[in-house]
């Protein structure tokens, strides 16, 4: 039994769609944020898989940069969530409507 690239394409698609689903059906800001991390991870998996099957290390570079950007994004995002919680006392997305006109 040989694992082909199709296995990784399917796995990556499933993980990405679970992330999208989580972002759509959840109203908790923290869990939506985790869903974004899940999507980033699934793309990383596809990069690494193609990099292995095409025998080039180009994909690994992109994974490296995606991880650095994700780390910065998480630190900023969690700071914003903490600030919002201080302001409104909730992390429910439906209750955060202060920008509504």
């Amino acid at each position: 039994m040989e694992i082909t690239i199709n296995y990784y394409v399917i796995l990556s698609c499933i993980l990405f769609c679970i992330g999208v689903l989580g972002f759509i059906i959840r109203r908790n800001l923290l869990i939506c944020f985790m869903s974004i991390e899940l999507m980033l991870n699934s793309v990383n998996l596809l990069f690494v898989a193609y990099s292995h099957f095409l025998k080039t290390s180009l994909g690994l570079m992109y994974v490296f940069f995606i991880m650095a950007v994700a780390a910065a994004e998480v630190s900023i995002g969690l700071a914003i969530i903490i600030m919002l919680f201080r302001l409104k006392g909730t992390v429910d997305m439906d209750k955060l409507n202060i920008l509504k006109g």
Binding site: M34, N41, V48, V63, A71, S75
Partner: peptide, 23 residues
Amino acid sequence: LLNAEFIAVIQLIVYAGAIMVLF
């Protein structure tokens, strides 16, 4: 398993370590 040892270790340190601890 995809012969990307460096990325695997970085994944564990940065994601499973730093980011999730932050969460």
